[in-house]
């Protein structure tokens, strides 16, 4: 088996284990390359189907073509698509840079908070109606207790310490020192009332593995990752105010792989374009302890 075969088999195993163990399970889809690979792996695991609802937290700052891309594949792949948003914060401009919030506070307002409340179902959320292709208010928002996330251990320090199945308390907080052990392919699939579980099927993948797999499987990926003629592209997708483009002329997956494998990005961290990391002392720990993915 090649390295990608091994990674794929392990991720599929984790996804199936999550699906078997948790009734109220949801998968986060940020439209970026990692969670799109995750979604593809779900289609692998369930033989073409995606029996797990997908959730997207729309910060209102996402680039418009991301929403078009999301809805196109939601329809094509028959996805149970749920969208949440902190509409109050957006309306009252409690944001960065036009509000008076710093980057980290903005992340909490537009990502961590709506994520928590959309998961629990106590804020209104939208679901896609496949007959009309439009979003409607979710009339019976269930609380999700298992959340599948596309985090990779090579992204930054605190993610390198994650488990595949990681319990979080009812405030979504992560007690790092008290993580239960995880042995062989046995995960913590039991949880005490009031807690929930984060599941990380992509922990062992690197950024390069992600692109190699996109190439091997021919996974449709949003074109923001490619240079569309101005010598710039996104390497990591986030909100417009905090995510910079990189100088690159990579126009397709192969050229991105070349850049990562031995070219100009071989030794430059992927999230170096994400400004909130720098504000957190070089890591995402503050945000992640508090529920950031």
């Amino acid at each position: 088996m090649t390295q990608l075969d091994v990674l794929e088999a392990q991720s599929v195993y984790i996804l199936r284990q999550a699906y078997r163990s948790f009734k109220d399970l949801v998968m986060l889809w940020s439209i970026g390359k990692d969670s799109t690979v995750l979604l593809w792996l779900a289609r692998k695991a369930f033989f073409g189907h995606v029996p797990i609802p997908l959730m997207h937290i729309d910060t209102g700052n996402k680039i418009p073509s991301m929403i078009e891309y999301r809805d196109r594949f939601a329809l094509e792949w028959n996805l149970h698509m749920i969208v949440g948003q902190n509409t109050k914060a957006l309306e009252s401009k409690q944001t960065f840079p036009d509000g008076n919030l710093d980057r980290i506070a903005c992340c909490k307002k537009l990502k961590s908070e709506p994520l928590k409340h959309t998961l629990s179902g106590d804020w209104p959320r939208q679901v896609m109606n496949h007959k009309t292709g439009k979003y409607e208010l979710d009339e019976n928002p269930q609380a999700f207790t298992g959340v599948i996330v596309g985090a990779r251990a090579d992204e930054e320090g605190s993610r390198s310490k994650e488990r595949y199945f990681s319990p979080r308390d009812h405030h979504s907080e992560w007690d790092i020192a008290e993580q239960p052990p995880e042995l062989w392919n046995q995960f913590n699939t039991d949880f005490a009332p009031g807690t929930h579980i984060r599941i990380h099927p992509l922990l062992d993948w690197t950024e390069l593995n992600i692109w190699q797999y996109i190439q091997r499987e021919n996974i449709p990926i949003i074109d923001l990752y490619f240079d569309n003629g101005n010598g710039k592209r996104y390497r990591s997708l986030g909100c417009a105010p905090c995510t910079g483009t990189v100088d690159s002329t990579a126009k397709n997956v192969q050229e991105i792989i070349d850049e990562l494998a031995g070219g100009k990005f071989a030794d430059i961290a992927e999230r170096s374009g994400r400004q909130q990391d720098a504000e957190d002392g070089g890591g995402l720990e503050t945000l992640r302890r508090d529920g950031y993915m």
């Binding site: 251990a153 090579d154 320090g157 390198s160 310490k161 790092i176 020192a177 062992d204 690197t206 890591g283």
Partner: peptide, 28 residues
């Protein structure tokens, strides 16, 4: 030692995965 508690106490608390390549193969 990426975690704040680890840096403060100078000890490793939880296992970390580090990705690394030799000429022969890739390692975690």
């Amino acid at each position: 030692d990426a975690l704040k508690d680890e840096q403060a106490q100078g000890i490793t608390i939880d296992s970390a995965r580090c990705f690394f390549k030799s000429d022969k193969r890739e390692y975690i």
